[in-house]
Design a protein around this nucleic acid. Structure first.
Lengths: 146, 146
DNA sequence: TTATTAAAAGACAAAATGGTCTTTTGGTAT
DNA sequence: ATACCAAAAGACCATTTTGTCTTTTAATAA
């Protein structure tokens, strides 16, 4: 579904936000370890997330990553677009450049409702909303994020 | 959604089946041209499809590719599994190894119904059913498969 | 102010994916 | 039989993705 970079970004940011909810500010090593992702690759991805303005960071002792509560929630579609490009989940399943209701590919009729549900999910849910689900234990402890 | 190889395989096989319905047996050059895919890459993919037993081929003058009417329809999930592996559309959207109703990731509740619809589509539709839609002009002429 | 800590930056490399081209093999038509 | 045609096989290359590591920069604590 999503590529590795997207998955690590998603899991990493949700982990960071979850720790923020607990009053903590994790660093790259902790994040990578907890989400079971390669350490340096995770660091590189988090850097990109900071540059994109999605998450904040502090260098030096006691440093780490955290979300600015003043910013709006980071919707999944924005996150994914920033990494994979917007077309990844909005394009034709058959691979056609121009495929729409008026000029559909043979899969269009059945695939477009699925794509709409995916888009709905990605515009409704955010890093913060997912982290809250974990925080509220709507999702079981342990093995979460792994 | 799907990778290039899968898309070319899908479009190529649908094109072949469509031509079969018209009494024709296209070759690699024609298929690649019509589906707007790289010629040699398409040839390589079609070879793989033949080895997998999905489609038949005849060498030499008047040769080309065709589907054996005696074989059952080639469902999309089989095609995709053969190219990308079965996990590509059945695994956790969040990237967790073990994610299910009892031990869900935070996206599970909203994502699993979507995944079920994808799986339904891929087990219901086949190369043949898609080709028939084009043949019956349920899908407009021209620009089809492109 | 100095040692320490942790992110930022960027070079480097492995693996997977995507793509090209040549040679060989097995058919077909004449 | 032979000339020709088209798929099969496989070598080769390019790009993207994934991953590793070292050096630099900036913040903190003592």
């Amino acid at each position: 579904m999503f590529n590795k970079e997207t998955q690590y970004a998603l899991r990493g940011l949700v982990y960071i936000n979850l720790q923020n909810l607990k009053g903590r500010r994790p660093g790259t090593v902790e994040v990578a370890t907890e989400i079971e992702a390669p350490q340096f690759f995770t660091a590189k991805i988090l850097q990109k997330m900071v540059r994109a303005g999605f998450v904040e960071s502090i260098k030096g002792k006691g440093g780490g990553f955290f979300f600015d509560p003043g910013k709006p929630d980071l919707k999944l579609d924005r996150l994914i677009s920033a990494i994979e490009g917007s077309s990844s989940f909005s394009s034709c399943g058959f691979g056609l450049k121009h495929c729409n209701d008026d000029n559909p590919c043979p899969m269009h009729e059945k695939y477009s409702p699925v794509r709409e549900r995916i888009e709905k999910l990605l515009t409704e849910e955010s890093v913060q909303s997912l982290a809250k689900k974990v925080y509220r234990k709507e999702v079981k402890k342990n093995r979460i994020l792994k």
